[in-house]
Amino acid sequence: MAEETAFDPKKFKEAVEEKTNARLKMWLEICAHCGLCADTCHFYLANDKDPKMIPAVKGKRVLEAFKKKDKIDEEFLEDFYWTVYGDCTMCRRCTMFCPFGIDIATITSTGRGLCVSQGKVPENLVKTIESYYKHGNQMEVSEEDWIDTLQWMEEELQEELPGATIPIDKKGANLLYTVNAREPKFYPMDISQAAMVFYLAGEDWTMSSKGWDDTNLAMFAGDLKAASYISQLVRDAAEELEVKRVAITE
């Protein structure tokens, strides 16, 4: 897990080697430094057009990291950390406007992955990743609480729409409906409203007792190992319930 690692140039170099791929090499080399990405970045626009905020500069920072390999120092890493986590939301808008199609979002994500090798991940993201491993969702909702919430929402729903249900673990349903873990935690009514739509549409649907959180915050952390573990949870649930489709909440 991310937090157990600390500043370790050797691991940084390993991460660089692992993450070097053909696209990244190509992109980092061919950038013509034309600056056409400037206006496409909300960080640039929101910071009084600070030239240091343009996407190409952030791409260059990652290139520096790739060149440094194990010659990084803590000062560089700290600065790099703030660039990849603080100055880019990986929205890919600049990619759409780059004449070469250079994907700064993917480059930033790779940069975050390099930070993961040094245990440098924002604290809140680390907490959610731990929660995914422990509870299968980002909000530390236990399976018991989850089922309770669904049953409670079903009762509320039936007051309005007698006969409507929130099916749990219904094998062979057409649709598996997954949610953001914030919904059972803070906005459970969202679930009963979705159920209302499904009921009125006559959809054959189900919710799952496991693998029901469709968010993937590890992806934002650049922690691809955790990210694929989290995606796998939903996939496993879909396969176990033999559903035809997986729907994700808005």
Binding site: R23, M26, W27, E29, I30, C31, A32, H33, T95, C98, F100, G101, I102, D103
Partner: peptide, 15 residues
Amino acid sequence: KLSHFIMFFFSRAVT
């Protein structure tokens, strides 16, 4: 970076 002479096509293609 002048290799965009050829790599332009590859980069545009993958994106």
